[in-house]
């Protein structure tokens, strides 16, 4: 005898889940089993490709393991972490990374928001302009690095050629301490300003029109409308874009590798580039793992603080 179908459905969700299996489906294949069967491949993949490597790196970070030397990994406690946190070399790279992150993200935010603001005020050709501005973001950083390397070449590059035709002198973009880091910031800004612009544009488009209409009736100035309507409404979205960009900029590797190789000397070596050297020049896998873990922890802590600020902003 089959189970009776409930005559009164007081909760649709509950009723749906309480319904018996459809005719023809094996009675052994319950909802739970089916759900596990469908999600387990993705879960296993996640465990194998993300969770396990992270835990494995955590384990290696407490050892002196070297991938090329092989052999059993000897437990060294917190020595790798102590060495990294007390290293003058690491502090120097951290400072370079900080200058780079602050410089690049600030420039991208100002430029990205400005471009988005200007585009949002246009009625014609907005879609085409947005698409054109997005092109740099779609290119591989390695490709971007290579063609900027040619363009910034002091002898044969197009930038110095243009400066020369304007009667200005040659600039050693990639081989001087100050200009090399500025060049990195400029190239990263060229590529990633469109990302900030895109997010800001989404925010600007979502600002209700009636607020501006009300402000117009009150004869509010352009600056007053921007300061009291546009910016406060777009700000939380912009901060999320800044968060994404800051995380990306923090782990910058490819542009440094292609454009400057960390030079001149080590003046443009970021933390990620340094980890690469520790991991693959000396194959000090244990130290490199600790270095990587510390970088992840820093990003997580800063992100949490940032998100709390963002939530507080929303509540206010």
């Amino acid at each position: 005898m089959s189970d009776p179908v409930p005559s009164v459905i007081d909760h649709p969700g509950r009723a749906a889940s309480a319904a018996p299996p459809a005719p023809g489906r094996s009675s052994r294949l319950s909802d739970r089993l089916l759900a596990v069967a469908f999600t387990s491949p993705a879960l296993l993949l996640l465990l194998a490709m993300s969770v396990f490597p992270l835990l494995w790196a955590l384990y290696l970070s407490f050892t002196d393991y070297s991938a090329t030397r092989g052999g059993p990994a000897a437990f060294v406690g917190l020595e790798n972490y102590t060495a990294i946190l007390t290293s003058a070399q690491v502090r120097l790279r951290a400072l370079t990374t900080l200058i780079y992150v602050v410089g690049a993200v600030a420039l991208q935010t100002v430029l990205g928001f400005s471009i988005a603001y200007l585009i949002s005020r246009r009625t014609h050709g907005r879609g085409l302009l947005t698409t054109l501005f997005l092109v740099p973001m779609m290119l591989s950083p390695v490709v971007v690095g290579l063609f900027w390397r040619f363009m910034l070449d002091a002898q044969f590059g197009v930038i110095n050629s243009m400066l020369g035709s304007l009667g200005l002198g040659q600039v050693e973009w990639l081989t001087r301490q100050r200009t090399a880091l500025i060049s990195l910031i400029v190239v990263d800004t060229w590529q990633w300003t469109p990302f900030i612009m895109l997010i800001a544009l989404a925010g600007l488009t979502a600002v209700p029109k009636y607020l501006y209409e009300a402000a117009s009736i009150d004869r509010a100035s352009e600056w007053f409308r921007f300061r009291t309507i546009t910016l406060p409404l777009v700000w939380p979205l912009l901060l999320i874009a800044v968060l994404f960009r800051a995380i990306e900029a923090f782990r910058l590797f490819d542009l440094v590798y292609i454009l400057t190789s960390g030079g001149p000397g080590v003046s443009t070596e970021t933390l990620s580039f340094h980890v690469y050297k520790v991991a693959f020049l000396g194959f000090n896998t244990g130290t490199a793992s600790a270095y990587g873990i510390l970088m992840v922890v820093i990003v997580i802590v800063l992100t949490q603080l940032y998100l709390r600020y963002l939530n507080k902003l929303k509540e206010d």
Binding site: V76, E79, A83, I84, S87, L281, G282, N284, T287
Partner: peptide, 10 residues
């Protein structure tokens, strides 16, 4: 430091 335990490579 080639025989050092931990912190090598920095």
């Amino acid at each position: 430091s080639s025989g050092r335990k931990g912190g090598g490579g920095l």
